[in-house]
């Protein structure tokens, strides 16, 4: 979808006006008996939120028309909260493509996920594609209560077919019970030092992660495991974190082989 001349929904006085969209989508899931209901489901700007068919006690949300945003200058945000005992599943309908837009200024795309005690959240968006000449700062911040469970899968593709990537910086922050569990940043693309060298990505252009946080992993921590014998078709490693969590990190030449590796490491139904 195109986002022509949408006025800033809540202009911040301290930020100089740049062209672009300001939009925050909000999702709140609560437990109601045997089911999860969604008292808050508010789309905004490029985000169009749809209730999908529930899956047992799990409520499902699909973020539609996502999006020919983010474009340079956009300030996009998704806030999702799973309250006590709620079971929430969020996907997007299509890949998110960062494009240059009317300005070279960066866009921001911030996702905040909050999980209360005994809540469960699946965050399974389609890939984020960093198109040539785009400039995006993406972040995902997750706060989990001690008994909460998370399944997150994120895939990033640097450049559309036959082009180089734009500038992309990402940040993943996971706190559990108020303590840091996982903190990762990355900067890719033109001007980012060393990103395509042999210590970081080499010539892989598709990067994926699966993060599982589950208190039961405390009692049966997984062993580290390597996947993908041939670097040409991708490599992945499953690592136990310093907490009840595991992280799968995969690198591949393209999304297809990336997903194959991620599925082999941890199939997500």
């Amino acid at each position: 979808m195109t986002l022509a001349a949408v006025p800033p929904s809540s202009p911040l006085p301290t930020v100089p006006t740049v062209p672009g969209v300001r939009a925050t989508a909000r999702i709140r899931a609560i437990r109601a008996g045997d089911t999860t209901v969604l008292p808050t489901l508010v789309g905004d700007g490029p985000f169009d939120l749809r209730r999908a068919r529930p899956h047992g006690s799990q409520a499902r949300v699909c973020i539609l028309a996502a999006m020919s945003a983010p474009l340079g200058g956009d300030r996009l945000r998704i806030d999702a909260t799973a309250k006590h005992g709620a079971d929430l599943h969020i996907t997007t309908a299509a890949a998110t493509i960062a494009l240059r837009g009317p300005t070279t200024a960066h866009a921001t795309y911030d996702v905040h996920l909050r999980l209360a005690e005994h809540a469960r959240l699946h965050w399974l968006p389609h890939p984020l594609i960093s198109a040539a000449r785009s400039n995006l700062r993406q972040s995902c911040t997750i706060d989990l209560a001690a008994t909460a469970r998370l399944v997150l899968r994120e895939e990033t593709v640097l450049g559309r077919a036959g082009e180089g990537p734009g500038r992309l910086s990402t940040r993943l922050t996971v706190r559990r019970d108020g303590r840091p569990l996982l903190e990762q940043q990355a900067t890719f693309g033109p001007g980012a030092p060393g990103w395509d060298g042999p210590a970081v990505l080499a010539d892989h252009r598709a990067i994926g992660q699966i993060l599982i946080v589950d208190p039961t992993l405390e009692h049966r921590p997984p062993h580290a495991r390597l996947l993908g014998d041939d670097p040409a078709t991708g490599q992945a490693v499953l690592t136990p974190l310093a907490g009840p969590a595991l992280l799968i990190t995969a690198l591949a030449p393209d999304t297809l082989r990336l997903r194959r590796l991620l599925d082999a490491a941890h199939p997500i139904g």
Binding site: Q184, Q185, A186, P198, L201, L226, V237, T249
Partner: peptide, 15 residues
């Protein structure tokens, strides 16, 4: 504090 990650360093460390 900075948290810059290097996927290949992680994968190859386990290898």
């Amino acid at each position: 504090l900075p948290a810059a990650s290097a996927p290949l360093l992680d994968i190859t460390a386990e290898q």
